[in-house]
Design a protein around this nucleic acid. Structure first.
Lengths: 217, 217
DNA sequence: TTACTGACCGACCGTACGGTCAGTTTCATA
DNA sequence: TATGAAACTGACCGTACGGTCGGTCAGTAA
């Protein structure tokens, strides 16, 4: 189920550096910056602690290197989206599903990036906005604005708010996956795409100018 | 703007213990468990480190005490909600607004609790579900189910999904407040209630069985 | 063979950590 | 005013932290 994560393949990197990166992304994602020790990273990577300092200047530098990798992944994924030729409504559904899939596939990277973005810390947030989510969100907003001008979306809605609802709902579902397990009545919990479909349905039929009747049974 | 937080008033507690709690909740909320040292708490509280150990058995015990306070606060607040006698639609709006307000008022407590709930850690999540959010979410689900049976909400929707969308959207907005500052086009960012209104509007008009035309200009 | 480079290691350093303890101050009550 | 409990402190302990350093070893080009 788990796809390639940061550091699992790294052309031009020695075996040790690759091992360090993939071990570090796992540990940082699970325990956060302060919860991880360089000794722990070294042990998990099967290298000496000194070796890490041979490849990275400091703990901070190692963390930033991983953060940059995560950022590059996300940016690349979003670049592949929004370039589709299908209908507006269909593109939004596809985007949501793809984004949801991305979050779960790159579980560790996503967790790491979200922790940084939603920490509430001003500097950390600014860095994430500048280096990662800024362009993505702006792109989504412009897409939604275009949808408004085309008459597909309600004209009285704030496209920025809609963009944040789209991202936020997916992100929250991803963050709350452990919580959801404790609610047996949530049948959609196990099925990622199932949630995404239902979510977009709710959001779209609220955003669409003309509610689509008869589309569902 | 900031209302009373955990530890700011604590009948039966010595001045020192109160100071320790209010300092600790701030630090833990901002920096997480591992990012906070007992020396830091002591300094922020203006007491000796030993004094903390006079009142609390360990760092873990101090953290748990704060977590329990946060949980109690939240549970109490939610108990006051959803008991209104107004219309279904109105009650959902009120709930969302009140919950949003609560998150921002109890900024530190909320951040602490959310960090614990959304950490992805199984044990932490279970504890939060059992002690705090479990009953709240179930209550919300039952409210939504009742709304379905009354014919107000679409019958083909999963009420659990709707509940999570309602909570999740508010939570994400709260978490992303620092991110939102970097998007000048988000006019709703500063106004909490403004976001809540718009959000519920989107969600409701997607959830409502019969779309209310003419309600907005 | 020599000289050099990058990957890698074990031992070590100063510091800060969580936690303990003997002892002092404060203060309500007898 | 004597007493005992609770509030509180500074000095200390063992440990683990991030980071450094001297050095080994394989590969490689001259």
């Amino acid at each position: 189920m788990q796809a390639a994560e940061v550091g699992s393949h790294c052309p031009g990197c020695s075996r040790g550096e690759t091992a360090i990166l993939s071990a570090a992304v796992k540990l940082f994602a699970e325990q956060g910056f302060d919860g991880v020790s360089m000794r722990g990273v070294a042990q998990a990577a099967g290298v000496s602690k000194s070796n890490i300092y041979h490849h990275f200047d400091s703990k901070e530098a190692l963390y930033l290197a991983i953060l940059r990798d995560c950022a590059a992944e996300t940016a690349e994924l979003v670049e592949n989206l929004a370039s589709g030729k299908s209908s507006f409504e269909e593109r939004l559904k596809e985007f949501s599903k793809a984004y949801q899939g991305h979050l779960f596939e790159r579980n560790l990277s996503s967790r790491l990036l979200l922790r940084e973005a939603l920490s509430g810390d001003e500097q950390k947030s600014k860095r994430v906005v500048d280096q990662v989510v800024g362009n993505v969100v702006r792109r989504m907003i412009s897409i939604l604005s275009a949808g408004q001008e085309a008459g597909v979306l309600r004209a009285d809605l704030d496209p920025t708010l809609c963009a944040f609802l789209l991202f936020g709902s997916n992100v929250f579902f991803f963050q709350a996956q452990e919580i959801l397990k404790h609610f047996p009545e949530a049948e959609f919990a196990g099925e990622t795409t199932c949630f995404s479909d239902g979510m977009v349905d709710v959001l779209l039929n609220g955003m669409l100018n003309k509610p689509v009747e008869g589309e569902r049974s």
